[in-house]
Amino acid sequence: MIYPSLGAFRAAPSSGFGKGPFAIVIAEDAVEVTSTVMHVLQLGFARVFLVAPEGVSLSDEIIAGGQVDIIRHRTRQPGVTQQVVNILIAKVPEEWIHYCFNGEYLFFPFCEDRNIGEAVTFVMEERRNSILTYVIDLYADDLTAYPDAVSLDTAHMDSSGYYAATRRDQEDTVLERQLNFYGGLRWRFEEHVPEPKRKIDRVGLFQAQHGLQLRDDNTLNDEEMNTYACPWHHSLSAALCSFRVAKALRTNPGSRHEITDFRWHKSARFQWSSQQLMQLGLMEPGQWF
């Protein structure tokens, strides 16, 4: 199905969507759109909504599979992420939703052997309805060969340099079991990243509910769903391995001429493995063994 506009998607009945979990892929450009969509399909998402401007599309073979809908919209406009996600939340209460951008790849513990349906079933059995995701920056090892910093075959990541800080509300009250997480390229090149964009945590996988809304800072208006763990034990978390920041730093006029290499002494070859991410402490299996 191709929706000619976001308004057409909003007006469409959700009866034809089937059961979830659902994934939203927001294509800001044409880079690695196909690989991102294929990745979420391989994880076991039942349906994928690709939000893309005119000129960004998928092969007829992928569309013919019947699991991908395309929503035509200008994705560089402010607030697009919140608009699209909140529309889908209202349409599919009780279903699980994941959202990401092109060039981002979701990993959860043991995802090579277990699908997303098994993961969210476990989380619900733990009486939780959200999974906190950490955005782990990926970057090509050679910016001469890959000027936009995107290379699946030579992807690298930071193996350390991640930290957390206390999160407070507008009244300066410490929020229980919530932290702001930092690291990666946003930390090492923070002079090129606006302060509100430096956090790497995102509630990137959650169960839709009536009245639930995604906010501008990638948190939800249900504070318990923004927590990294439940009160009684560690909870499963996930990682979004992403070329988005590296690509932006190499595209934006203010930074592209100042950065000639993203590698440093703590760079590691990305193995496209959930085990690597768990060993580095970048996601938590919780009680799921």
Rank of each mutant, 00 (worst) to 15 (best):
Y3C: 09
A12Q: 10
S14L: 05
F17S: 03
G18T: 06
G20V: 04
P21K: 07
A23E: 06
V25W: 01
I26G: 03
V33S: 13
T36Q: 07
V40F: 04
F45W: 05
V48N: 05
G55N: 02
S59V: 00
D60Q: 11
I63Y: 07
I63S: 12
A64L: 06
I71K: 13
R74A: 15
G79I: 03
Q82P: 01
N86C: 02
I89N: 04
I89W: 04
K91D: 10
E94W: 06
L106M: 14
P109Q: 11
F110L: 15
F110H: 11
E112A: 12
D113L: 13
R114G: 03
N115M: 09
G117F: 00
E125F: 09
L132S: 04
L143M: 11
L143Q: 05
Y146S: 10
D148P: 00
S151V: 06
D153R: 09
H156W: 13
Y163H: 11
A164C: 10
D169Q: 05
D169T: 01
Q170P: 00
Y182F: 15
L185C: 14
F189G: 02
E191S: 15
H192Y: 13
H192P: 00
V193H: 12
P194K: 06
K197Y: 12
R202A: 08
F206A: 09
Q207D: 02
Q207R: 14
A208D: 07
H210L: 14
G211A: 10
L214K: 09
L214I: 12
R215D: 02
D217Y: 06
D217K: 04
D217V: 06
N218K: 06
T219N: 05
L220S: 05
E223A: 10
A229N: 04
P231D: 15
H233M: 13
H234R: 13
S235F: 03
S242Y: 10
A246E: 05
A248Y: 09
I259T: 09
T260I: 03
R263F: 01
Q271V: 02
W272T: 06
S274E: 03
S274A: 15
L280K: 11
